[in-house]
Each structure stands twice: as structure tokens, then as C-alpha cells.
Nucleic acid binder design. Structure first.
Lengths: 249, 249
DNA sequence: GCTATTCTCGTACAACGTACTGGAAATAGC
DNA sequence: GCTATTTCCAGTACGTTGTACGAGAATAGC
């Protein structure tokens, strides 16, 4: 892992150079691959094997190229990650114009984000490392700002609203996936043996040190139906979130 | 980086083994260091040099030990990270009992979280990787659940509220730090040359493709005073957040 | 063909996490 | 103090990572 920035944030690559199309030179040997193809392959790898499996060697092998060939398309791995994030952001299906019902539009954005993050479970963890905004991300930001225009927020507040909405979705999806994984692990062993994490939690609460936590783990949902459907849970929280973020000061 | 879990989530270490005290054996040579000391040193390193600088070699050098000596205290690096997260969670100053004003108590929790994250800027990025809850984290969870007891939420909703509150604070602090870094970089060059990211954004908007974004970047805050004070911004958003998360279904 | 330009990729290296292992060190019982 | 026992310490070594370098291969314009 040589050459990872030694101080807080690494320098990275000039975003202007990164995202401007680097017009195809008309001379010399034509490239056998493309940035988009490499990025797509890296995304597929992350989807199936996890973010840790995305190594330069593995990605190169997947497209049938030598490891170092990647560096003709991407200056370094950090940049590849930024490209991955922006590429999946391109999956957003955005209406050309806000509908006029800004609450509904915000819901729509968040639902899209959630769908994308569920399709690419590595995304929530990768987002905090993002240094720049690619064109696809900017398109979502732009649309969100357009939606927020009629809301009584000033410009900086509108900008941050996007960030907070994304953060909320990421938090929730992370929680959702962890939850599903836990119950799946529990079910796999016929509901008898829970997974290590849950077992640990039960053990911790069994000491009596965390009464409220113990109660929360023991208590079934008051209204099971409303908790069974993940979409319903998300939508309900999302609605409150939108109310909170867009309330008048 | 040999032996990082190949699939999505790595197996990690049994949390029970991790967090139970591992009673000190009474015979033989006493250890020269402690898990807490090592963790503290790793935290200090991350604070000053960034999370990437936390290598087993660097941490060992800091306490004046051989690299491999660390493995007497910590089974692997991933675990060290969990310990770091839980150790800084111990900085929370929690009242012994909820005050009765649960909104104020939630504010207090979030403010503490924000202060800790600002003191340890690597924390927001490290949180998504957390696999288990250590005792200090559990104490915060427990207190939060106690605070939420009088609120009309059922048990699972209370549990997730903690997660969402933490996620909100992490998102906001990440945003705050990025913002400060950008303005600081801009100021360093006497307000003339902006940093690469900002320059990139301006360039992107200059093409006319993102009118709302361009406007947002150009427009000064409607009420500058309310944006100058980061605490005020945080408190205002936090208030809305709390309203949203704890609203009746 | 020639040449300039560009992509390709084998080799190489530093840095990482960590398995292994022999020896050093401290205590417990005498 | 001596010895046996238990434990910790750290050098060496291996596999894997990101990536610098440079020689070769393939193309476009002349």
C-alpha cells in the first residue's frame, strides 16, 4: 500500500483534470479499453466480492489486461473509487423538471439513492472518502437544488440539505443491511444460534448493566406489521427527515 | 494487506472475546504495555497524521516496542480500529440520569458526539466500518435509550434513532470540516486562488450546465450572521432533526 | 516506409499486515 | 538464591498491495 497520503487528506488528483473529458487524442495506438469499462468492472467486482476485493490487479485481470495498463486510464486507485461512486450515481433516474410537489420530489430522490445503495452495498462506506463531485453526482445535486428552490432556505442551507439527505439515506441503508444480515445469519441456524454480534449484545445486556438496551432487544415491535416492510419504515423516517430539514428556521 | 476478508464483510473477531476483560493472568512476565495505552497511541497518531498513518509498525514504534509485540494485545488491525472508536466514545460526558427534558438531553448527546468527532476527524470515516459495539459505545446507546423512553417510539425505533442521530452528526461534521478546509485553503492564498475542488465546481457551473448550483455557489448567505457561527447552524439543524426523528408516526 | 505518438505490461520495489519461533524475562514455589 | 514455569518480546520472513519505470507494440500522419 505504498504512497498513501501521509497526512489527513491525501492530495488526490486535480478534479478538473479528472472530470474533464480528456479529449481522445487522434494519434498513436488506440486504447483497447475505456475508463467507463474499467470503472464498470470495478463496480461489478465490489458488488460481488466487496470493496476490499477491488485491487488494481483484480480489476485488470477482469478485463484481461496487465495490471499496469489500468494506469493509462486512471491515475491511481483513489481516483478509480471516485469514478465508481460517480458511475453508480448515474443510475439515478431523475425527472427532467421538478414536479412542483417538492416533498414528493425529495422522497423520489431519496428512494433512488436508497435503491442504488442497496444495489451497491459498498457505497455507503465509500462515500465519506469522496473528495470531489463527478458529473453524475452534480446532476443529482443540481436537480435537488431545483427541487428545493421553492422552499424557504437560503443557498448554503440548500446545498447542505443534499449532503444531509444523502447522509441520512446512507445511515439508514447501513442499518438496514446490518439488520438483514443479522436476521439472515440467525435464520440460517434455525433461529437457535444467533450471530456473534447479537450474541455479544445479549451477553452484554445479561449482566444487567444496560437495562434499557436489554429491554429494547427483548421487546418485540409494538406494531409488527409496520416494521416488517422495510420500505414503509424508510418512507416514514424519510418523511420526518424531510420535514425536519426543510422546516422554517 | 494480506488477509483482508475476501467477501463483503470480513469475519472479524468474536466480539465476546474482544470486549470481555481477558482477566490478567497472575503468573509469568507482566506485560509492558496495555491495550488502552496502545489504543491511545493509535488515536493520537490518527489525530495528528490521519487514519492512513495508523500502521502497526508506526503504533509500535510510538510506544517503543517491536511491531509484533502489538499482537500480544490486539488480534489484528481491524480490532485496533474498533478499540479506537470505542475509546474515543469514552470521552462522552453523560449525566447519570436523563434530566426529564428529553429534547435537551438528545441535544446534549449530539453536541458531545460532534465535539468528539471534531476532536478526532478520522472518526466519521471510520464509523461505517464498525462491526461491534464496545462498552463505551453501549453506554451511550443505553443513555440514549433511557432518554428516549418517554417518547412515543417502540423499541426498534428507539434503537435506530441512535444510529440515525449518530449518522446525522457524522454527516454534518464531515461537511463542516470539508467546508472549513476549503475556506482555509482559499484564505491561505489571500482569497485569490481557490482550492482545486472549489475551482472545479466553479468551472463545472461556468459551462451553464448547472444553473441552480451556480446560483448557490454565487449567492452569499441570506443571513450571514446565522451561518457564521457553526454551533448555531448545527443546533438549528439538530433541532429539526430531533423533531423529525421523534415525531409521532 | 518512417516517425511521432500513444497504449501495453513485465519487472521491481517499498510498505503493509501478520505467521512463526527461539529466546529473554519475570514470577511462584522452594 | 535457585529453578521451573509461564509469559512476553521481537527478528525474520512471506504474501499482497499500490505504483514507478522503461522497453516493446500498435497506430496515424507523413
Amino acid at each position: 500500500m505504498a504512497r498513501t497520503g501521509s497526512s489527513g487528506r491525501s492530495a488526490g488528483v486535480d478534479p478538473e483534470v479528472l472530470w474533464s473529458q480528456a479529449e481522445r487524442p487522434r494519434r498513436g495506438r488506440p486504447p483497447a479499453h475505456s475508463r467507463a469499462e474499467i470503472t464498470a468492472e470495478a463496480v461489478a467486482l465490489a458488488d460481488t466480492e466487496g470493496l476490499a476485493a477491488v485491487t488494481m490487479r483484480a480489476v485488470a485481470a477482469r478485463i484481461g489486461a496487465g495490471t499496469m495498463s489500468l494506469y493509462s486510464y486512471v491515475p491511481n486507485k483513489e481516483t478509480l473509487l471516485e469514478l465508481m461512486i460517480d458511475q453508480v450515481s448515474g443510475d439515478h433516474r431523475l425527472p427532467p423538471e421538478p414536479s412542483g410537489d417538492w416533498r414528493a420530489d425529495l422522497r423520489g430522490i431519496a428512494r433512488e439513492q436508497r435503491a442504488i445503495m442497496r444495489r451497491h452495498p459498498w457505497l455507503p462506506a465509500a462515500l465519506p472518502a469522496r473528495q470531489t463531485f463527478g458529473p453524475n453526482t452534480l446532476a443529482v445535486v443540481e436537480y435537488t437544488l431545483a427541487v428545493l428552490a421553492p422552499v424557504g432556505l437560503d443557498a448554503p442551507a440548500r446545498l447542505e440539505t443534499f449532503s444531509l439527505l444523502t447522509g441520512f439515506v446512507a445511515s439508514h441503508v447501513t442499518y438496514e443491511l446490518a439488520q438483514e444480515q443479522a436476521t439472515e445469519a440467525a435464520g440460517r441456524t434455525s433461529g437457535e444460534l444467533l450471530d456473534a454480534q447479537t450474541r455479544h449484545l445479549r451477553a452484554a445486556t445479561a449482566t444487567g448493566g444496560y437495562p434499557h438496551l436489554a429491554q429494547a432487544l427483548a421487546a418485540p415491535a409494538a406494531d409488527p406489521a409496520s416494521h416488517t416492510d422495510p420500505e414503509a419504515v424508510f418512507d416514514r423516517l424519510l418523511g420526518r427527515m424531510i420535514n425536519g430539514l426543510t422546516a422554517a428556521p
